[in-house]
Simulated assay, not measured.
Amino acid sequence: MNKLTSLLPQHRKAAGFAPPGFIEMLLLAYIVAAVLNFALGNWIFATAMLAPLVGLFFWIQYIDRQDRCRIGDQIRVSLGPHSGIEGVVVGSNEAGTRLTVQLSSTGHPEPMKFFVYQVRKVKPSPPGRDVELSPPLF
Rank of each mutant, 00 (worst) to 15 (best):
P126N: 09
G128E: 02
V119C: 13
H108I: 09
M112R: 10
L8A: 10
H108K: 03
K113I: 13
I60M: 08
S105R: 13
L99P: 14
P135Q: 12
F38S: 13
V101A: 03
L4Q: 15
D64P: 05
Q118T: 00
G21F: 08
I60D: 05
Y117E: 14
L40Q: 00
P19I: 01
K113F: 05
V119M: 13
K121Y: 01
P9A: 02
E86F: 02
R70H: 05
R65F: 06
Y117V: 08
A39H: 09
S78D: 04
N93H: 13
L103A: 02
F45Q: 10
G128A: 00
F138I: 12
A15E: 11
V131Q: 11
L103I: 13
L53C: 08
A39D: 09
L26P: 07
M49Y: 12
R70T: 03
W59P: 05
P135E: 13
V131G: 06
Y117H: 15
A95V: 10
L137S: 14
S78G: 01
Y117N: 15
G107C: 01
L7R: 12
L36A: 13
L79N: 04
Q118L: 08
H82T: 10
L133W: 11
V116L: 09
G41M: 06
L79Y: 13
L50Q: 13
V89D: 01
L26H: 09
I23D: 12
I23C: 08
W43Q: 14
V89T: 00
A34I: 03
L36H: 10
Y117T: 04
P52M: 00
R70I: 02
K113L: 09
T47L: 12
C69P: 15
F38Q: 06
Q61S: 04
P9D: 07
P136W: 08
R98Q: 15
S78I: 12
R120M: 12
L7K: 14
I75Y: 02
A46M: 12
G21R: 06
H11Q: 15
G16K: 07
I63N: 01
T97K: 13
Y30S: 07
A95G: 06
V101T: 05
W43C: 10
G21A: 04
F38E: 02
A18K: 15
L50N: 04
P19K: 08
G80Q: 03
V101P: 10
L36K: 14
V116I: 09
E132R: 15
Q118A: 02
K121L: 12
Q118R: 10
W43D: 10
E132W: 09
A33M: 07
Q102T: 03
